[in-house]
Design a protein around this nucleic acid. Structure first.
Lengths: 144, 144
DNA sequence: ATTTCTGCAAAAATTTTGCACCTTG
DNA sequence: CAAGGTGCAAAATTTTTGCAGAAAT
């Protein structure tokens, strides 16, 4: 038996720090890193420590209130929108945008046919150039 | 002007280290981290340094020979299969499996309609339980 | 009162770099 | 021999932890 040693879920206390982190992530348009989250909130909570931010992000993820988004380059980013959605990621500037479109049910079927597995959740990442970068950028096919 | 200062691509030399890293990644069934790659190869290349592995992975990515896969938890992983494909990720054990199915063209259309952007590349991640974990695991709806 | 949380600082873990010396072309 | 590459070690980052005191329930 690989017994999980009877782990009771702790009763969470409500703290200003955690509340603000969640609230801020919800309104953030980008998908911030732990450091960016700390940076943004340290103005109004001057003693907020990075450790506290890390610990709270972990709690919020485990409670399903936010999502972890693994971003290329290795950093973890956080997404204040826990509803299933997809992402458009700019190849040039790395910006991540939420897309609230629905995954075609066909995909789940394809998976089942290919592997016999059932998908609980499907996440689609679209890569391309965001509007700003597309304009900004003429050297798209020119390079040698 | 944000001039790219006329950067000439270096002529790469062929080295045993780089060759073996690429070759090993191609046959690897998992999606290894830099550390795992080093660990696996240090037997046959006893002086192989981690720094070299990092530098070569970066080169191989930039040449499009391998892919970076950002995995939750923050670590970067590498995928020796540069052809576009998708992933099935086990919620329980974290294993990542390649899926060689084709994204429905409908998706690109949806993106265009929703955002007016064009997708160069679409990556789909399916989350669920792999076969081993599904069997292994009876406590799926039982938890309080 | 008891449990959970915070801030701070130290410790780990991960990734990047500088540099002297080898290798490839 | 010139351009790249390697190994090693130090430095820079990023994330995790231990602890004593503070807050929440």
């Amino acid at each position: 038996m690989t017994s999980t040693p009877l782990e009771r879920a702790p009763r969470r206390h409500q703290t200003r720090q955690r509340a603000r982190i969640l609230e801020w992530l919800r309104t953030a348009d980008s998908h911030p890193t732990a450091a960016q989250t700390h940076e943004a909130l340290v103005r109004e909570l001057p003693n907020l420590s990075l450790g506290t931010v890390y610990r709270n992000l972990e709690v919020l993820v485990s409670e399903g209130l936010i999502d972890e988004v693994a971003s290329a380059g290795g950093g973890v980013r956080y997404d204040g929108n826990p509803k299933p959605h997809h992402h458009f990621i700019c190849d040039a500037c790395g910006a991540i945008d939420d897309l609230h479109l629905q995954a075609p049910p066909e995909l789940a079927r394809k998976l089942r046919r290919a592997r016999g597995r059932t998908a609980r959740r499907i996440r689609i990442d679209f890569y391309g150039l965001c509007e700003a970068c597309e304009l900004h950028d003429s050297n798209a096919g020119t390079a040698s």
